[in-house]
């Protein structure tokens, strides 16, 4: 098992290192992630939202629907944690089970 996972990791490492050659250089202002919508956000966010912090403008205004989904995910995760553990067999029950053993 250990050998198989090591072999798998080595193959994946080769793939990742091969793919990393094609990625844009760090700090390149003309790379693909920095060109499409990002200049629009930087130029227009202050006059459209009156908020100097562009991260907040993108988060809450341009992508507000996305953030609504994220907030719902957080709320549902909290709810799930509560519900999973609220029906848990309590310590008392576990001790009874221990007596049976």
């Amino acid at each position: 098992m250990k050998k198989i996972s090591l072999l798998l990791i080595i193959i994946m490492a080769g793939m990742y290192f091969y793919a990393a050659v094609g990625l844009p250089l760090i700090g390149d202002a003309n790379s693909a992630p920095n060109t499409h919508v990002a200049p629009r956000y930087i130029e227009k966010s202050y006059e459209e939202t009156a908020s100097p912090n562009m991260v907040t403008a993108v988060l809450a205004d341009y992508r507000g629907y996305d953030t609504l989904g994220e907030t719902t995910v957080i709320f549902i995760a909290g709810l799930a944690t509560f519900l999973i553990l609220s029906t848990a067999p309590s310590k008392k029950k576990e001790e009874e089970g221990g007596d049976n053993k």
Binding site: P24, I26, G27, D28, A29, S31, P33, N34, V37, A38, P39, Y41, I42, E43, K44, S45, Y46, P52, N53, M54, V55, A57, V58, L59, R63
Partner: peptide
Amino acid sequence: VLGQKSGGTLPIMIGHDNNVDLYINPLPHA
């Protein structure tokens, strides 16, 4: 790391200067 630009600073506007080269990309941060 993909949002970095050399010579860019935090994506918080300094004064009213909205020069694109001055700020790093705010999208990956958000």
